[in-house]
Amino acid sequence: MAHINRKIIFTGPVGSGKTTAINSISDIDIVSTNQNASDMTQKRKKDTTVAMDYGVIKLGNDEKVHLYGTPGQERFDFMWSILTKGGIGLVLLLDNTRKDSFNDMKFYTNSFRDFIEEHQMVIGITQTDRQKTPSVAQYREWLDELGFEAPIFEVDARKREDISLLLQGLLLSLDPGVAE
């Protein structure tokens, strides 16, 4: 049976934990773009999936869910449109220690607006062990202001169980009856 392999996209500002989160949940060692960059320069590959973090959740029978992390540092939006093709949902990670978390949320939700409206988003607030505020309640208010609906959880990107719950939230939002 032919399987359609789908993907989940992890996005958010630099330092928000995208790479770590993918690493926590992936069944393979994460493919780090930083390592690939030099190969890329040498070989001039044109169609390889670099410039992003990449992981996999294997479901068996060669079926996989790909996990892609958008490059956070410079917000290359053309990469995002490439990345989101075939995506089933978006995981937005926001770093609670950043100065303007609201603007981060606004920027990323606006950038992925079409995708979010068509699919689903879940938000993970990271670094809350270092900085407790803004609180989850504050993020909920901001999300209301921006006109989105999404589960918002505090997560430690290093903890598999946190990222797993985040993904479960995403899947249940897509279909509340998924587990029945």
């Binding site: 773009t33 890329m40 320069t41 169609d47 410039a51 540092q73 290359f76």
Partner: peptide, 18 residues
């Protein structure tokens, strides 16, 4: 340009930006 961003630009130039 950082390796990460360089890889992105190379990807872009190698595809739609070619």
């Amino acid at each position: 340009i950082s390796p990460h961003n360089q890889a992105i630009l190379e990807f872009f130039i190698g595809s739609t930006g070619g």
